[in-house]
Amino acid sequence: MTMDVTIYHNPDCGTSRNTLALIRHAGIEPKVVEYLKTPPGREELAGMVRGAGLSVREAIREKGTPYAELGLDDPSLSDDQLLTAMLEHPILINRPFVITPLGTRLARPSEAVLDILPADAFKGPFVKEDGEAVLDGEGRRIV
């Protein structure tokens, strides 16, 4: 299937790996951006957050990051200040963000990516790394 898909990926993250596997299970080879090595620019990051329908604060990753040490829990910080912190410390960017012609999602959980991929692209079961079934034998989402 031909579809322009970009994933902002961290190969050390299970959710990110599962999301990438789901995209590939749809027969799509996405553009993979390892955002820790190649972070997005300010406008690109702000656009991803907006496109996903999130606030900047909702797009920040706290666990395993310098979030607390940087004082980012301060509610008086502006979106611009939070974006600056995310750009200076890309580990603060929650992952994985996925962009397709059907929309943008922060794919947490990984099956959130199904909302922006063609439903008819899936031709069989899909099981996450942890054994959780996401798609049944017909390629339909398990709810």
Score class of each variant (00 low, 15 high):
E129Q: 15
F126R: 08
V32E: 07
Y35M: 03
Y8Q: 05
S55V: 00
L114R: 07
T65H: 04
D136M: 06
P30H: 02
Y35R: 11
G41Y: 13
R108H: 06
L102A: 12
A46F: 12
V49I: 15
T100R: 04
L70T: 00
D79G: 03
I99P: 00
A26M: 04
T6R: 14
L135A: 11
E29W: 10
T19L: 06
G139L: 02
S78W: 05
E58Y: 11
D136Q: 06
E43R: 14
S76G: 07
E88M: 08
P39N: 08
S16N: 02
I7Q: 04
P96A: 00
E138L: 10
F126M: 09
A46K: 15
P125G: 14
E132R: 15
V49G: 07
E29F: 08
R50M: 12
P118I: 03
E62T: 14
P101N: 03
I23D: 06
A112S: 10
E138F: 04
V49L: 03
V5Q: 00
V33G: 07
G47I: 03
R141Y: 08
G103F: 07
I99Y: 07
K31P: 06
E34L: 08
I116N: 00
M86V: 04
R50C: 09
L72H: 07
P40V: 12
I7H: 00
K37P: 01
R108T: 10
D120N: 11
V143M: 13
G47P: 05
L82M: 01
I116G: 01
E111W: 14
V113L: 09
L20D: 07
G53K: 12
Q81M: 05
D12W: 04
P109G: 08
N94I: 01
M1P: 14
A107G: 10
P96M: 03
A85F: 01
T15Q: 07
G139N: 09
V98R: 02
I99C: 01
P118F: 02
G47W: 03
L72Q: 00
G14N: 13
V134E: 06
T6Q: 10
C13L: 12
Y35T: 09
P109K: 13
D80I: 04
E132Q: 15
T104R: 05
A46P: 13
L83R: 00
A21T: 02
I7T: 01
P75H: 03
E69W: 06
E34C: 10
D74P: 06
I7K: 03
T6Y: 11
T84N: 13
D130Q: 12
